[in-house]
Structure formats: structure tokens, C-alpha cells
Design a protein around this nucleic acid. Structure first.
Length: 304
DNA sequence: CAGCCGTGGGG
DNA sequence: TCCCCAAGGCT
């Protein structure tokens, strides 16, 4: 065949498409987990619920709670019709229970302001309680197939390694990372959405934070971090989050009592789960302030 | 923007 | 045991 023009030299974008994007899309096609919120029949509400639950919480612990949640509240309106305390109770031990409150508040907002339908618009999603930049982009992409830059901890780590050549991304999201994410995003919206979930999956299953399974990685040969000899992270030390003895642990103990109790409890029931009086009172006050607990007219405590 | 907000599994 | 950290958001 004859061509009237010589094929142009590959641009950097085309190199990236060939070396990074295509292999990761192929890898995802073969290795993607079958997760409920990824199935074709998954509703935007199911996706939104999953995203809130997955914030800082592993998939393995989300699965059962997500299923029970969707069974009980298949629509935002169904959840909005119940007291927020029921959301907190059904949240179980997923952690960060304020997320349950935010999800309930989001359900109320969706019901009252969006006719009961999860909005598809990024700005409208962002306005929902508990929905930040990441979650808004994720829902727009995964529930509605939009072309969005989705930058979660997995994506940031994969891009840091494969493109930037560092073991870990910066502590906070940088302009450079946003630009990089935008530059890599395929032009076609459905492909872009798949790309976003594919990079996340690679980060979750292969390009993990500790002991990455590089031997399984589809882009190992193109990985800047590998090509640089896999230098270890040299930034400022990452803050280790202490937990034992903290207010967080104390709040968790107190809320567990309320969660396991139908109705209200006497304060003595709370006093026995934490020895330090000062810390316990402070934690209880913070739960009340957060709206995770209420004080009844009888001086007892309960979920809202 | 640094600090805070839960919980449990794996190495 | 202890340490790391897992699809962030909010103030």
C-alpha cells in the first residue's frame, strides 16, 4: 500500500500510550476483581456508597457491609427516610463513622435537591457531604462513564513509580500530579474511565505500598522507578498514626456500646469501657458535637 | 494545611 | 508485639 505521507515520529504522548496505558488496560481486562460496585447493573447509588465506604478502608472489609447496606437502602430516598443513627449502626466496624453520617446527609441532599437521583455532575457531587475531589471524580467516572482525572492513593503511587521514578508520591496532592494525571488520561470517555479504575486496581493488587509485586507488573520494563534501581523513599518521614490510648480509640469504644444497643444506655454503661475519666468525657462530648451520639431527656445516651 | 477522625489484617 | 497502612474528607 502507498502512503502519501511518512508516519510521523512518535510523540511522547504516543510513547506513554504504548508503554503505559495500553499494557495497564490489557492487564486490567484480565485481572480486574469482580466487585459488586463494578458490575454493569450497579447503580450510581451503589457506586457512591462504595466510594464512601472505601475511603481509608480495605475492600475486604467493605464487601459485606456494602451488600447489606444496598439491600436495606437500595435508593438514597430509602436511607434518607431513616434516622441518621441507623446509618451509624449499619456502618458497623468499618471505622471513621462520621462517614456514615455524611452518607446519610448525602442521601438527604440527593433526595431533596436532586429528585432522588445521584447527580452526574462533578460540581454537584462535590457539594455532597463526604464527597471530596477524589470521590466526585470517581463517581463521575465509574458510575457515569465520564472522563475524569481520578487521583487516589493507588493512582498516585503508580504514577510516582512508573513516571516520576519515586517510590512514593508527595505527602499532599501536587499540581504536577494533577497535570500528569490529565496528560495520561485517554481522550475517549469510556476508555478514560476504564483507565482510571485500571490504574487503581494495579496499585491495589500489584504496585502496592509495601513489597510491590513487580514481577507481576505489566509495565515493569517501562517503570521509571525500576529503571532507576528502585531507590527507596527519601522524603520526610511519614507520620505514624498512633491509636492505642488516643481519643479515637476511646470514641470507638463508646460508639460501639451505642451501636450494639437498641434505644438508649445509662451513662454507667459508657463509663466502664474507658478508665481515664477526663479523656472519656472529652471523647463523649466530641461524639455529641459530631452528631454521632445524642443525650436524651432522661440523661441517657443513644445514636441519633 | 497539619492534624484529626476507626478498625483490623498482614508481615 | 509492633508497625504499616487501606478507593479521603474536613477544619
Amino acid at each position: 500500500m502507498t502512503t502519501s505521507t511518512r508516519a510521523p515520529l512518535p510523540t511522547p504522548e504516543q510513547d506513554v500510550q504504548r508503554d503505559l496505558v495500553a499494557p495497564i488496560l490489557d492487564w486490567y481486562d484480565e485481572h480486574a476483581r469482580d466487585l459488586p460496585w463494578r458490575r454493569p447493573e450497579a447503580t450510581p447509588w451503589s457506586v457512591l456508597v462504595s466510594e464512601l465506604m472505601l475511603q481509608q478502608t480495605p475492600v475486604s472489609r467493605v464487601l459485606a457491609v456494602h451488600e447489606a447496606w444496598l439491600q436495606r437502602w437500595p435508593t438514597p430516598a430509602a436511607l434518607a427516610a431513616e434516622p441518621s443513627g441507623e446509618a451509624v449502626r449499619a456502618w458497623g466496624r468499618l471505622g471513621y463513622p462520621r462517614r456514615a453520617l455524611r452518607l446519610h446527609a448525602a442521601a438527604v441532599a440527593i433526595t431533596t435537591e436532586h429528585g432522588g437521583e445521584v447527580p452526574a455532575d462533578h460540581a454537584a457531587l462535590l457539594a455532597l457531604p463526604g464527597v471530596g475531589e477524589y470521590t466526585a471524580a470517581a463517581v463521575a467516572a465509574f458510575a457515569f462513564g465520564q472522563r475524569q482525572v481520578v487521583l487516589d492513593t493507588n493512582v498516585r503511587r503508580v504514577l510516582a513509580r512508573t513516571v516520576t521514578g519515586t517510590e512514593l508520591p508527595p505527602r499532599s496532592l501536587t499540581r504536577a500530579e494533577r497535570d500528569l494525571g490529565a496528560a495520561l488520561l485517554p481522550a475517549d470517555p469510556p476508555t478514560a474511565a476504564t483507565w482510571s479504575v485500571a490504574v487503581m486496581e494495579l496499585g491495589a493488587l500489584v504496585c502496592v505500598a509495601e513489597r510491590p509485586r513487580c514481577e507481576q507488573c505489566p509495565v515493569r520494563d517501562a517503570c521509571a522507578w525500576q529503571l532507576a534501581g528502585a531507590p527507596s523513599y527519601d522524603g520526610p518521614p511519614r507520620r505514624v498514626q498512633t491509636y492505642a490510648g488516643t481519643d479515637r480509640q476511646c470514641r470507638g469504644r463508646l460508639l460501639a456500646v451505642l451501636r450494639e444497643t437498641e434505644g438508649s444506655v445509662d451513662k454507667a454503661r459508657l463509663d466502664v469501657v474507658w478508665d481515664d475519666d477526663v479523656q472519656r468525657e472529652r471523647a463523649l462530648a466530641s461524639l455529641l458535637a459530631d452528631g454521632l451520639a445524642v443525650l436524651t431527656d432522661e440523661g441517657r445516651y443513644a445514636l441519633p
